[in-house]
Computed example of a mutant assay.
Amino acid sequence: MPERTTLSSWVRGIVQSLELEGLDSRALFAELGLDFAALDDPDARFPQDAMSRLWNRAVELSGNPAIALNIARVHTPAFPVVGYALMSSRNLGEGFERLERYQRIIAEGADLTFRRLPEGCLYRIVVHGDRLPVPRQSAECSLASLIAMLRWITGRAIKPLEVRLAGDAPQNVEPYRELFQAPLSFGHADCAMLFSHEDMAAPLPTANEELARLHDRFAGEYLARFVSSRFSHQTRQVLCRLLPQGEPKRESVAQALHLSERTLQRRLQEEGTSYQQLLDDTRRELAQQYLATPRMTLLEIAYLLGFSEPSNFFRAFRRWFGKTPGEYREEL
Rank of each mutant, 00 (worst) to 15 (best):
L239M: 04
G167I: 14
S89L: 06
V127H: 12
Q265K: 12
E140K: 01
S142W: 13
S145C: 09
D280P: 01
L54R: 10
R329Y: 04
R315C: 03
F46A: 05
E261Y: 00
S145K: 11
L179W: 14
Q265H: 05
L194K: 00
G33H: 11
S52P: 06
C191P: 00
Q237N: 02
R225I: 06
L7Y: 06
F317S: 09
A292E: 07
I147A: 12
S62E: 12
P203E: 06
T297E: 07
K249Q: 09
N172H: 10
Q245Y: 13
K159M: 07
L239R: 02
A139Y: 09
L264F: 12
E140W: 14
I71P: 01
A30H: 08
L99M: 04
I14G: 03
E221L: 01
T293E: 10
A287L: 00
R267F: 02
T324E: 10
Y176Q: 05
H258C: 08
E60I: 09
R101F: 15
N208R: 07
A201D: 03
N208A: 13
E309L: 10
T273V: 04
L278T: 00
E330V: 01
R115K: 15
R104F: 11
L99S: 08
Q234T: 06
R151Y: 14
I153R: 07
A256R: 13
A302M: 07
H197Q: 02
L184S: 08
P80T: 12
G167P: 05
D24T: 03
A287R: 09
K323E: 15
T263Y: 12
R217K: 03
R156C: 10
E251K: 05
D35W: 02
R250Q: 12
Q265D: 11
E285G: 07
Q237V: 01
G187D: 10
I71R: 02
A302P: 05
I105L: 14
Q277L: 04
S311V: 13
A256G: 01
V82E: 15
Q269D: 11
L132P: 11
R177F: 05
I301G: 07
P65F: 15
R53L: 15
P175W: 15
T273M: 09
L223W: 06
G272W: 06
K159A: 13
A316T: 01
P47D: 13
E221Y: 00
S17G: 08
P135M: 13
A72D: 12
T76P: 00
E174Y: 14
P244W: 11
R104V: 02
L279R: 02
C141A: 15
A212M: 05
Q277N: 14
G155R: 07
Q289Y: 05
Q289T: 14
F186H: 08
L194Y: 11
R283C: 02
R104P: 04
G246H: 01
L23I: 13
L214Y: 09
S9G: 02
T273F: 07
L69A: 09
L257D: 03
S252H: 04
Q171D: 10
K249W: 09
A182K: 08
A68Q: 09
R151F: 14
P294I: 05
A302W: 03
R115M: 08
A202W: 10
Y303M: 03
L194M: 09
G120Q: 02
N70E: 08
R90C: 15
G167R: 09
F96M: 15
F231E: 00
Q277P: 00
D199R: 03
S88R: 10
R73I: 05
F180C: 08
S308H: 14
